[in-house]
Write a protein that binds this DNA or RNA. Structure first.
Lengths: 180, 180
DNA sequence: CAGATCATGTAACTGGTTACATGATTCA
DNA sequence: TGAATCATGTAACCAGTTACATGATCTG
């Protein structure tokens, strides 16, 4: 389960509550794929049962208690083991390309509006991603090497949206020359 | 449900059996995300219940009957409606980038071996993708415009793996210069 | 006064994976 | 003789989404 390790990673940096984690997952495209409580809170309970994290309950007046989690030595081990395991390849679910595959049924106006919508959305998301991925609150930079790694992660994400944007612009241009 | 429309799309091209579809989904990165029977066979039953496809049962001697599905007029309508609906953005689940985010805990030998593994796998998959995405059996080319669309889909996929490959090579180079 | 933020959590669901089961035929 | 291909399907499970519930405090 990826989410488990994603959480272990973050906790190896600093202790967080479920709520903190939820916000990080929501805000960062790196952790894009789950920003929902249900899974996060349940995963924390599991990790706790497995002895990989420990929880510190901080009582607050007039707000529910914060449950702050941190790694146990076993948690550190589990993380380190995962870090050395063989990397998994990125998964892309690109629904739009499937849509496009049958879009010859559309008029050229409809098709271009579809592409222009896509272009706008990619552009907008690209800006968001660029902003959030550079947010120093979302990642550590304790050594020069760690800094380089996170820069490279940020570059991978923002570069990806750039790639997608150039691709759609190029396609629109090609379709226009076909039109004439 | 994306799978539903992906199937409607394919059936709008030509009739297929569940087994045919399963193989297409397995072979093509475009439909990467599900090559498993369970869902495909169940989805076909659903589509049939909804009246979007009709089935033609072809008895065979000594082999189970082939159930060949094709679109009904309602199926064509549903597809056309979806084609004109607002495009959805690509989803990337990039587990490796999360792994990398905490990889400063590894020795430089371990880190480089991780990256080199990743590079090899991306390279290999890139070749596969390039081959399968150009396979004319997996897509129609009935008009010049349709041809252009599918070329562009193929380019999006193979270009993506190229992008990922250049990214990892670049990172390895940067890490090496840091080392010295 | 309405809506966001802090902070926890649960219920019901959809989507997707892994593994199993059957059984004939072809190919190395 | 063992593996791959053709062709159907089911059972059990894991992962992820949407929506709900509570209740105080802060901000416009």
């Amino acid at each position: 389960m990826t989410l488990e390790y994603a959480i272990l990673g973050l906790l190896s940096w600093q202790p967080f509550s479920g709520y903190d984690l939820k916000r990080i997952f929501e805000d960062s495209p790196v952790y894009h794929w789950s920003g929902n409580n249900n899974q996060i809170y349940r995963t924390l309970v599991n990790l706790h049962n497995e002895g990989l994290v420990e929880r510190d309950i901080q009582q607050q007046e007039s707000l529910p208690a914060r449950k702050v989690y941190s790694l146990t030595p076993q948690g550190h081990n589990a993380l380190r083991h995962w870090l050395n395991s063989t990397p998994s390849l990125p998964l892309r679910k690109h629904e739009f390309l499937i849509q496009l595959g049958w879009a010859d049924q559309l008029s050229s106006a409809e098709l271009d509006s579809l592409l222009s919508n896509y272009e706008d959305e990619v552009f907008a998301l690209g800006l968001l991603v660029q902003a959030s991925v550079k947010n120093p609150q979302l990642h550590p930079a304790r050594t020069m090497r760690e800094n380089l790694l996170w820069d490279s992660i940020a570059e991978n994400w923002s570069g990806y949206y750039q790639y997608e944007l150039e691709w759609v612009r190029n396609l629109r241009r090609q379709l226009q020359t076909l039109e004439v």
